[in-house]
Write a protein that binds this DNA or RNA. Structure first.
Lengths: 156, 156
DNA sequence: TTGTCTTTGACCTTTCCTGACCTTCTAACA
DNA sequence: TGTTAGAAGGTCAGGAAAGGTCAAAGACAA
């Protein structure tokens, strides 16, 4: 975890945790200055770490007085997260995206670390190898089924 | 027992025993440097000595700041149980037998009710419909993978 | 000798980082 | 009012920094 992108990620998530607004505003060039890197490195971090799947929204504005705004997305209240998740999953789900989604469930404390590890290993698809073709579609199905199971009232 | 692969194996297992995290993280090129060998020699050691059968799991990440992570699988009572389970599962696993095994795990308090429900729903294979042929073989693979995940020492 | 285990090196894939160049916005100025 | 300079942020391609794969050569035991 010693690389630059990871450190910037941790830094941003930390201040995002500390704020009560649910979002933070910052200047790209300033942040780049603090980490002594080029401004586009910030975009790289935002593009790879602060995606919608992982629960973030990034807005920005150019020109004088421009800024970056990183918004933390909740999963809604009480069972609403099921719907949000299903939307995000869609018909196709890559392994990277599924990992992001599962991490987010952990962050929201909707699944435990152990459960998350289980889900990830099942969705990784190492077992099927080349046997199964349409892996992304299958992964989407499985993820949804798992969500359904997790929402069963008798499991609480 | 004086060959290079054996020495690297011993070295890694020694530090792996000493850690309380249940895993170690290292850089392939760095380790290769310490033993004055080519980096791919490390892969050879990992592939032949740190397999799931022998109680280890290896994860890695490429690119700048990449790493290798060797995870210890439980060697205690639970671990032995896992070994028995793996034998029991074999190459084919019917739905009835898998449900039986999962219930047994619940009985032994090795998995929670929620986890059991998740495993069952994944193994039920409702999602795949007729798409996949050799469902009993796949079920066996998945069950083993799940057991492996549950025995990871870094999840305790 | 033969078959298995080890070691090496050439080449590949993924992830990260940088810099050059582009687009958008504001504000001052003619 | 229209123009334009400067101040943001955006994009993209290329190089660097990891780890992965594979086949061939070497070492060694049966």
């Amino acid at each position: 975890m010693g690389n630059l992108a990871d450190r910037i990620e941790v830094y941003l998530k930390r201040i995002l945790e500390q704020t009560s607004e649910g979002y933070i505003i910052l200047q790209r060039s300033e942040l780049a200055g603090e980490f002594s890197c080029v401004p586009s490195q910030i975009n790289y971090v935002l593009d790879t770490r602060f995606t919608v799947d992982r629960g973030y929204l990034v807005e920005s504005r150019r020109g004088g007085g421009g800024y970056l705004r990183i918004i933390r997305l909740g999963l809604g209240i009480e069972g609403q997260y099921q719907q949000v998740m299903r939307q995000l999953i869609g018909e196709q789900l890559s392994r990277e995206r599924s990992n992001g989604l599962v991490d987010r469930l952990v962050g929201e404390e909707l699944v435990t670390i152990r459960e998350a590890a289980m889900i990830k290993c099942v969705l990784s698809g190492k077992d099927l190898g080349g046997k199964f073709k349409d892996w992304d579609a299958l992964r989407a199905c499985l993820m949804k089924t798992i969500l359904t199971t997790l929402s069963r009232d008798d499991l609480l």
